[in-house]
């Protein structure tokens, strides 16, 4: 009797070792964060992350979600979570709406001044919000939009990333499709709703995921335009989190880390569950 023993090649072992090391590098720091949310603050303060799992998840979660700081008493975790969703969804929706319409006009219409419009729009790709952050703040202030959702969301939309993405995608759709539709008697509006939107479903979904994560994770801009605690998003609230670790007698590690965890959970889940769309959307934009 012979048994075939698969020869394990050294190079394969090395490959897996490298990949496992990389995976651990990504996961372990976050696991430490998670572990600390299960422990009482006193132990966290003394020993930091450890291998034991405590029983403080529920109380820490309740503190994180429902306890508020500051004068107003409204910036609970729930409130920040809601604001984060408003920012993420509002930003993604606005970006896609504005971008799709503009890209449709640019790709499918014969226009005078088409190239002018093109340049006006795509120049915005050159300068990220961060380099014009103060004047943008002043503009929002002058328009009385500080501490409003509009002021939070709309300036972030003022670049052409989604427009550029949809332009690239629309250009990859065979020309004959619009020609066939014209012969079939579809005008521009009908073509948009009957053909283009159904064809772009995957792309819209991919874009939505990317933009949601991008909006959710905004930090600098929300830090500047929202000063009222009721407007804070989770990521904006991180500042409060770090302050929790500074000011108090016993730093509230459990609550702070729980808030950090809640801040990363929705985008991480979305990216993991819709991985293939997300990757497709992200890498298509390179073309």
């Amino acid at each position: 009797m012979t048994t075939h023993k698969r020869r394990l090649r050294l190079s394969t072992v090395v490959d897996h070792a490298i990949l496992i090391a990389g995976s651990l590098l990504m996961i372990v720091p976050v696991l430490m964060l998670v572990q600390m949310t299960s422990m009482p603050d006193l132990i966290n303060m003394k020993t930091g992350p450890s291998l034991s799992i405590g029983d403080q998840w529920v109380p820490n979660f309740e503190k994180a979600m429902f306890q508020a700081d500051g004068f107003s008493g409204i910036n609970t975790g729930t409130r920040m979570l809601m604001n984060s969703f408003i920012l993420g969804i509002g930003f993604a929706f606005g970006k896609i709406f504005v971008g799709m319409l503009a890209a449709y006009a640019i790709v499918y219409f014969r226009m005078r001044y088409a190239s002018l419009a093109f340049w006006i729009i795509f120049t915005t790709l050159l300068l990220p919000l961060e380099v014009r952050i103060l004047p943008s703040y002043e503009v929002v202030q002058r328009l009385g939009m500080l501490n409003t959702y509009q002021g939070l969301i709309i300036p972030l939309i003022a670049s052409a990333t989604a427009t550029f993405f949809f332009r690239q995608y629309f250009r990859s759709i065979p020309e004959e499709l619009v020609e066939a539709a014209r012969i079939d008697g579809a005008g521009p509006v009908r073509f948009f709703f009957d053909i283009l939107i159904p064809l772009s479903r995957t792309m819209i979904a991919a874009m939505f995921i990317i933009m949601f994560v991008y909006g959710w994770n905004q930090y600098l801009w929300p830090t500047m335009v929202t000063t009222e605690e009721g407007m804070f998003t989770l990521v904006r609230g991180i500042k409060q989190i770090t302050q929790m670790l500074e000011g108090n007698q016993i730093p509230e590690y459990g609550r702070a880390n729980m808030l950090a965890l809640i801040a990363i959970l929705p985008p991480v889940m979305i990216v993991i569950f819709f991985q293939s769309w997300f990757v497709k959307g992200l890498t298509e934009s390179d073309k």
């Binding site: 065979p174 004959e176 499709l177 020609e179 066939a180 539709a181 012969i183 079939d184 008697g185 579809a186 009908r190 009957d194 053909i195 159904p198 064809l199 479903r201």
Partner: peptide
């Protein structure tokens, strides 16, 4: 007129039935 394209230009998200009927529907 009616036209048959080199790459057929069928609407990929519609069934054959809808593809054929789309021009009439419009």
């Amino acid at each position: 007129i009616a036209m048959v394209f080199q790459n057929y230009a069928l609407y990929p998200h519609m069934t054959v039935r809808k593809n054929i009927g789309y021009g009439l529907q419009n």
